[in-house]
Design a protein around this nucleic acid. Sequence first.
DNA 1: CAGTATCCGCAGTGATACTG
DNA 2: CAGTATCACTGCGGATACTG
Lengths: 106, 106
Amino acid sequence: MIYREKGYRCGIDVTLAVVGGKWKSSILWHLAQETMRFSDLQRQFSDTTRKMLTQQLRELEADGMVHRKVYPQVPPKVEYSLTEKGRSIHPILEQMCAWGKAFVGE
Amino acid sequence: MIYREKGYRCGIDVTLAVVGGKWKSSILWHLAQETMRFSDLQRQFSDTTRKMLTQQLRELEADGMVHRKVYPQVPPKVEYSLTEKGRSIHPILEQMCAWGKAFVGE
DNA sequence: CAGTATCCGCAGTGATACTG
DNA sequence: CAGTATCACTGCGGATACTG
């Protein structure tokens, strides 16, 4: 199974490559609630550097999970939202969230 | 949300901490089919070092996801199988697998 | 505001050799 | 057979400064 010139053992590995990044699932989770500006995301992920946040967003964008809308104005304004593909992972994230809670709450 | 003295943003992060490791989901996936000896796993994951494989298995064991049965004999024999907790993640893995396949097959 | 660019430390990983 | 132990290296990610 090939994606972006890399081989994957099965679909699970692909999924983890897309949402398994350090902050990606959380980003997708938050964007599912609402469209957010970069500064909004910075506030939510205050323990992350701009660099990391940008990088994760760029990868999600490259995978077609998020849409990046740039308003050509000064000062700049950039909004991030989920694409259709990005929304399609949400049921799985919800289950992962529930499983994780149950796992800890024992 | 605390687990093993580490804070997690939400259940998703916990789940990824448990199954998101480089080979963990694949290990859980294969063990779901059948109990395997260490050498069986080595064959399946031929591109992984013994060290990595051992480490991932130890972490899965510490999280109560796999059971490690040692046969006290020479030469040694060690069998790995899923615990109840380990089996409980399987539905999610199946969905991740399906999602990943759909993601690539476009 | 929303990013790049650059440098750097160190944890994670690999290679190799050894052991009960 | 099923692991440890040790060393060396790479590259992820943090800190900081700069830019359109």
